[in-house]
Design a protein around this nucleic acid. Structure first.
Length: 850
RNA sequence: GGGGGCGUGGCGGAAUUGGCAUACGCAUCGGUCUUAAAAACCGAGGCCGCAAGGAUUGUGGGUUCGAGUCCCACCGCCCCCACCA
């Protein structure tokens, strides 16, 4: 650069330290509740403080911070809070291992993480920061539990649950991932235990329906939730139990759930799961009992991992009893089979071996008949049996079940009807059963109630007391919070259940000695409403004021990992709806727009983990290059929702760019004349070109930013910096336009400021001479008209192939374009017959000639 | 088995409604500066060909003046759920 004027070196560490202090001292990013500006709530999923922040956090928060800072420049009052999901097992395990307190360990980690957040320059309103282990917070989690208890949404029940032997606690269904504990990956055992639940199933239909209104959510997350909720339409059908004599029907009914009532004629046996109390009752004292008990025992010892998967061989035993098929009136044997689930549907299934592969395999193994009752028209069976209403063919020689679509055969009065899911035959048979009161249309969900009790110390205590006289009694509201004692001797293996000062109490109803519930709540209860608390974090009268939540909610931009697609994001939606129904808020859904960022993997594409020793700590980038380089590199390397592999070269490249942009802005600033007015009409030559590019790239940068496409938004600024740099090299100083230089420098700084905030503030003040924060400046505006050039190059195609180019005035008419194109391609059109000409103004002319 | 998504240079990736494929960056190779290196700056190619030129968005077909983009089939990859009746 020919400039004589001084350009200071870019000293990232000095600049970043300086601005971090200024932002902190001046509370630059405090969210004002009483602002007249429109609000925007930008939120990143808060971290679990298991140590310092890692690259995944850095990426998550860099995305959110860019959004928050830009929203502010767009004129919004921005709420951008941060806190800690601080309860959980790692703290307890660390405390046991190092013989310290879980709270102390957690607070040490939180302090370190906060320091890293500040070192990254994230624009949080730190005054709103809290941790879920603060009693001022978890008190209101207990409050919510009691409200749910009052409404019947919290309850205690005994049922087979997933017990993790390594974590020594039960797990929610959602926390058994691939048949393993989501946290420690050990295989849970089934245990019959008395546990506490939240009745999320009451909201199954609404949780499903409202997904449609979440237009700002990624499709795959919504699909995962739909899948998990798992709505199935079908029918319940009552089968009469046959007396022990094997022939006399009794009044006792056993109900099944099926999505395919149209296959009822093909039902040749009846199934119960080994855990079924009814099954145990039916075989009690009979010759079939020993085999049944053996099967039941074998299931207990098979892990859920092994019991899952259709490859596993099915096992079953005959119960010695029968039920009556309500359509045929014929008795069918009741079998007990290990592929039947106790907790789906009614826990009883009708076996339809011709159409269901599982039933088919079971029938083959145990020699049960496989009557065909449905066939495609091209199936020989169809020709043979299409008019047959009685069961003629009672077995088949197939080697697998047939696709269960087609026409009913040998199915009584329904023979000939089209069968299949949602088919006429389904409706007809449901109607038929309904008229006789032995069947009805029904809907089933796969979603189970949320098991929230954990037999662990470091969590929010369930605010209930068990009294031998009065049963389960809620802790009175005025006694909240039930404080978690902080002085347990975890190292010596002490638990809440053994800690008398905690559990010894008196019954609030009868006053007699009673025992507190010593289970704590799943940490996901704490993270299900923290976004509401940020709206009003210091409220000591209620969890949050309705006015504050009305003002700030919903979360306009929620950013976090895809691994929460089901767990956290489903629980939070549920909690929001519960709070709404309690009259606390007027909100159906908490998160308006959701962005799930991809993972940061190592250079080989492996996930980073301590055990693999391939973790790249944020400090290893911040120290040599600075936070701004790191933020830029993370956002530039790939689209936000995609995984990327860590690449040191990209960081070096980002640092090269940030330094080049620094020099370019200084170069422009040194040529700037801030007193002159910018008059675009007067610009010519290189200055006019730069002005046009400023508008073109400004529009692209802004549009891509608005789509959260930070990588291409950044590339637009890079192009502008490249052009500006060329302008400084190619245009002698006395020919540069001072007003233009000032404007371009300003806009480059502004457009990069959400991503490289310290860099931007420093240039804004030191190079451009502004006072006040750049985040009080409006986002620059650009004019699409000014992005157009007077002459444009169009492509000349002949039959769709590029055959030449032509420079034409931007406002040329279609006829002029056609003429220019014909002139440009004249020598290739000689002797050809022009059939048709397609003109796309400003882009191309396609001449169809033969 | 059910659901969601994806295939573009050596690499990360770009390409509003179908309209110049490979923007931007990394790596590579030249050059300037330097005693030298680094940094910085300027430039080049990207597959085939010495070249003019041609080919090219997983494969095959279709629609269209024109397809990375739309439709059909196939191949390959990723993610989620799953003995859910």
């Amino acid at each position: 650069m020919a400039d004589e004027k001084i350009i200071p070196a870019y000293d990232a560490e000095a600049i970043e330290t300086k601005w971090q202090k200024i932002w902190e001292d001046e509370h630059t990013f405090k969210a004002r509740d009483d602002s007249s500006r429109p609000k925007k709530y930008v939120l990143e999923m808060f971290p679990y403080p298991s140590g310092d922040l890692h690259m995944g956090h850095a990426r998550n928060y860099s995305i959110g911070d860019a959004m928050a800072r830009q929203a502010r420049m767009r004129g919004f009052e921005v709420l951008h809070p941060m806190g800690y999901d601080a309860f959980g097992l790692p703290a307890e395990n660390a405390a046991i291992k190092h013989n310290t307190q879980a709270g102390a360990w957690t607070h040490r980690n939180m302090a370190q993480a906060t320091a890293t957040m500040k070192r990254m320059g994230f624009s949080y309103d730190y005054d709103r920061m809290f941790a879920t282990c603060d009693s001022e917070y978890y008190k209101w989690g207990q409050w919510a539990f009691l409200k749910m208890w009052e409404k019947g949404l919290a309850y205690r029940a005994t049922s087979p649950v997933n017990w993790c032997p390594s974590c020594n606690t039960v797990l929610a269904n959602e926390q058994v991932v691939d048949g393993k504990c989501w946290r420690c990956h050990s295989v849970p055992e089934k245990r019959e235990l008395s546990q506490w639940y939240l009745k999320i199933t009451d909201y199954a239909q609404e949780l499903l329906d409202d997904l449609d209104q979440l237009t700002g959510w990624p499709e795959n997350v919504k699909a995962q939730q739909r899948n998990w909720i798992g709505r199935s339409e079908g029918a319940e059908i009552d089968f009469a139990l046959v007396a022990e004599d094997g022939v006399t029907p009794t009044d006792r009914l056993i109900t099944v759930f099926t999505t395919r009532p149209d296959t009822l004629y093909g039902t040749s046996f009846f199934l119960l799961p080994p855990e079924s109390a009814l099954a145990a009752e039916l075989v009690a004292g009979t010759e079939y009992e020993p085999a049944f008990l053996e099967l039941k025992k074998s299931v207990e010892h098979v892990s859920s991992v092994d019991r899952q998967g259709s490859e596993r061989e099915k096992h079953g035993v005959f119960s010695g009893r029968y039920v009556v098929n309500p359509l045929t009136g014929k008795p069918m044997p009741i079998w007990i089979a290990d592929y039947i689930l106790l907790d789906y549907g009614t826990g009883a299934v009708m076996g339809v071996p011709c159409g269901d592969q599982r039933d088919f395999e079971f029938a083959r193994k145990y020699g049960l008949p496989i009557p065909p009752i449905i066939a495609e028209k091209d199936d020989p069976l169809y020709e043979q049996l299409k008019d047959e209403t009685e069961l003629k063919v009672t077995d088949v020689d197939w080697d697998r079940a047939m696709a269960a679509e087609g026409y009913l055969i040998q199915s009584g009065p329904f023979t000939g009807m089209l069968g299949g899911k949602h088919s006429p035959a389904v409706d007809a048979i449901i109607d038929y059963l309904g008229e006789r009161g032995i069947g009805r249309k029904t809907v089933q969900f796969r979603l189970r109630d949320w098991l929230i009790s954990r037999q662990r110390y470091w969590g929010n205590p369930i605010p209930m007391i068990h009294c031998d006289c009065c049963g389960d009694v809620p802790v009175p509201y005025d006694q909240l919070p039930v404080l978690l004692p902080e002085n347990l001797d975890l190292g010596a293996g002490e638990t809440l259940a053994e800690y008398a000062p905690f559990y010894e109490t008196t019954c609030p109803v009868c006053g007699k000695p009673a025992k507190r519930i010593t289970d704590t709540m799943d940490t996901f209860t704490c993270s299900s409403w923290y976004y509401l608390r940020y709206c009003d974090p210091h409220n000591d009268q209620e969890p949050f004021s309705k006015a504050a939540v009305d003002h700030w909610m919903g979360v306009d931009n929620y950013i976090g990992g895809i691994e929460h697609a089901i767990l956290h994001l489903l629980y939070s939606r549920f909690w929001t709806k519960v709070m709404r129904d309690l009259g606390m808020i007027d909100l159906d859904e908490p998160f308006i727009n959701l962005l799930c960022q991809g993972m940061v993997k190592d250079a080989n594409g492996d996930t980073m983990s301590k055990s693999k020793g391939n973790v790249v700590p944020p400090s290893s980038v911040i120290e040599p290059y600075g936070a701004d380089t790191m933020r830029l590199a993370i956002l530039f390397i790939a689209p936000s929702e995609k995984d990327f592999n860590w690449d040191e070269e990209v960081v070096a490249g980002a640092n090269r760019f940030i330094k080049r942009a620094w020099r370019t802005v200084w170069g422009l600033a040194n040529s700037a004349d801030s007193s002159a007015d910018l008059n675009p009409a007067k610009l010519s030559g290189a200055s006019a070109d730069l002005w046009r590019r400023l508008n073109e790239m400004g529009i692209k940068c802004t549009a891509d930013f608005d789509r959260y496409q930070f990588n291409t938004s950044i590339s637009a600024v890079m192009e502008l910096v490249n052009d500006a740099s060329k302008y400084l090299v190619d245009t002698p100083e006395d020919q540069r336009d001072g007003a233009l230089c000032a404007r371009v420098a300003h806009d480059i700084v502004a457009m990069l400021s959400p991503i490289c905030p310290h860099w931007a503030e420093e240039l804004f003040h030191e190079a451009l001479g502004f006072t006040g924060s750049i985040y009080d400046e409006p986002w620059p505006e650009f004019d699409p008209e000014q992005a157009k050039s007077s002459m444009v190059e169009i492509v000349v195609q002949i039959k769709g192939k590029v055959r030449g180019r032509a420079m034409v005035p931007a406002d040329a008419t279609n006829a002029e374009l056609e003429e220019a194109a014909k002139a440009a391609a004249a020598n290739q059109l000689v002797g050809k017959d022009i059939k048709k000409v397609i003109v796309v103004p400003g882009r191309l002319v396609n001449i169809v000639a033969i």
